[in-house]
């Protein structure tokens, strides 16, 4: 009997919870923001329009420390942003709770995960302690400022096409950081805030999360 191709019989999608974003008292601008960026941050904060992305102070520190560790050698770094997607008053936003990475194959102008370093990355994903979504990725441009190169846009198109997917670019030499998302033409900059994370609630356990899954029959 000839071997058949794998057959997909059912898809399950995760619902997007209606959750209020972190309150303004918990929010702060990134410490590397310029005076103008801080002013824009304050305007956004007063407008009560949610930011596009909320990054926990712990995740932000991990990313910054990682980029700074390799800055002396002008080597790029790379990792995943782990979190969740929420909705509030009709607007979708992204919460980055943690970051994960592993050993890299890196140069001043290119970076990937080292081919044999995935087990360490998977260990970090499993150790995140919540039912994560890889809501985006981060990488550094040491000394080149923050923008989306052609390679970066290709990565965004290939793997991070959802409207909530974030590309965080950090330059530890010029001390800049920006977030981007995919648009029809390329990538556009998005707004983000740093929030002070609360202790993890029991409702975040993977078992509780499973209850939110909506079954969808595959076509």
């Amino acid at each position: 009997m000839p071997m058949t191709r794998p057959k997909i019989v059912r898809e399950t999608r995760r619902g997007i919870p209606e959750t209020e974003p972190p309150g303004s008292r918990k929010l702060k601008p990134h410490q590397w923001f310029s005076t103008m960026e801080k002013e824009l941050f304050e305007v956004r904060l007063r407008s009560s329009v949610p930011f596009d992305v909320y990054i926990s102070s712990a995740a932000e520190k991990k990313v910054r420390d990682h980029a700074e560790r390799y800055a002396a050698g002008r080597l790029e770094v790379l990792g995943f942003l782990l979190g969740e997607v929420c909705r509030w008053k009709g607007k979708m936003y992204t919460v980055v709770r943690d970051a994960a990475t592993t050993e890299l194959r890196s140069s001043p102008s290119n970076v990937r995960f080292a081919p044999n370093a995935y087990p360490k990355l998977f260990h970090q994903l499993d150790g995140s302690g919540f039912d994560y979504i890889i809501v985006g990725w981060y990488h550094s441009h040491p000394g080149h400022t923050c923008f989306m190169s052609r390679t970066d846009v290709e990565t965004q198109r290939a793997s991070f096409r959802e409207p909530y997917h974030v590309a965080l670019v950090i330059d530890p030499v010029t001390r800049e950081v920006r977030t981007f998302r995919l648009t029809g033409e390329g990538c556009e900059e998005t707004s983000f805030a740093i929030y002070a994370a609360e202790p993890r609630k029991s409702a975040d356990s993977p078992r509780r999360r499973k209850l939110r899954l909506k079954p969808v029959v595959a076509h």
């Binding site: 790029e76 790379l78 995943f80 102008s109 290119n110 970076v111 990937r112 995960f113 995935y118 990355l121 998977f122 994903l125 890889i134 990725w137 990488h139 550094s140 190169s149 052609r150 390679t151 970066d152 290709e154 990565t155 290939a158 793997s159 991070f160």
Partner: peptide, 8 residues
């Protein structure tokens, strides 16, 4: 299924 991103 895990993405294998490339930054440049």
């Amino acid at each position: 299924l895990i993405p294998d991103p490339e930054g440049g």
